[in-house]
Design a binder for these strands. Sequence first.
DNA 1: ATAAATATCAAACAAAAAGTTTTATAAACA
DNA 2: TGTTTATAAAACTTTTTGTTTGATATTTAT
Lengths: 187, 187
Amino acid sequence: MKEKIDLRIVKTNKVLFNALITLMEQKDFEKIKISDICEVALINRSTFYAHYEDKYDLLLAMIDNLKQNLENELKQNKEENISKNYFIEFLKILINHVDEKRTTYNSILKNDKNGILIDFLIDVSNRDLISRLKNNNIIKSNIPLDIITKFYLGGIVSIGIDWIKNKDKYTKEELISYFDKLIPDKI
Amino acid sequence: MKEKIDLRIVKTNKVLFNALITLMEQKDFEKIKISDICEVALINRSTFYAHYEDKYDLLLAMIDNLKQNLENELKQNKEENISKNYFIEFLKILINHVDEKRTTYNSILKNDKNGILIDFLIDVSNRDLISRLKNNNIIKSNIPLDIITKFYLGGIVSIGIDWIKNKDKYTKEELISYFDKLIPDKI
DNA sequence: ATAAATATCAAACAAAAAGTTTTATAAACA
DNA sequence: TGTTTATAAAACTTTTTGTTTGATATTTAT
């Protein structure tokens, strides 16, 4: 089913991802040159072009990789842990995931690439959020469901962005308790 | 107090803004060349460099211009109309403003520049939102105020983005009623 | 209406970055 | 161990950026 990928390719991708993150911490995405990336990654420029069209292509691949990591962590938890409060469970995993990869997320957000992040969060969290909102007044209030989910996820991402940018402003536990209060369960 | 700006400069700025919007509808911001912009704007490339450092500089100027427009519309309304429900009033003006400049906002959002938009909205709407949230349970729930405002504004922007992208999915009136229901007044 | 100021244009230029190609080498695979 | 294939190195072309010059046209101010 899943083909083995040449170790060299895996390695090259890794150093490219790391180089991009490092550079995005230092300067605007727009100002980063492909030659900069290769220099930091210690690979040849022709090798870069063998894998990616341009730096934007590389960025998308990196974000896709992040998403896969998160999805794996979520799947693993679903198998082990069967709690009733799916959404809070989801938020805990999300927050831990982001916390562990804070540098990466920070560099993405610093460069205004959060539209991509919101889409991916919506994709990944929709079901759990809906399970939380079911049976409450909001969901009965004839507002379309996609509007409701966009609203709460937008709010979560907005706070999340602030949290990533301002490390140690709030603890993870505080964050979860805020979300818990702001997103209606049963009213 | 305010100095007169040479008509030629005003004109150049206008065609540059328009050209950028036109191009952002067609392709990614990253892929737009300064020579493209000048070609569409029908100005010389050296004229571009006389005004802006690069295309990002131009984008920021364009967004700043939008913000000033919105602020003027808000100020005007504040003088004419003294309603008690400041925040809904604010939302109405905001929605009309965005609707009139839909192409512009759409092109900005398509290109993942919404981080900038959220900051500017927070800047522009904070007071009215807080006036709405005062005296309700949320604000008494010992969640920091900036968390609360970020949450609701993030939600509003997230829905707004969807609305701009999917024209005519909901009417302006529906949109306002959704916001009104989703953002607690008194509970 | 005219003079002075200045923004734009045109064209040529230098420099930087992107992107391609070839061959040799080294690493991974089977 | 032999075969495959990714990477490196280096030279090269093309594209795009950014700057400079002087001539021209437009705007402003008198």
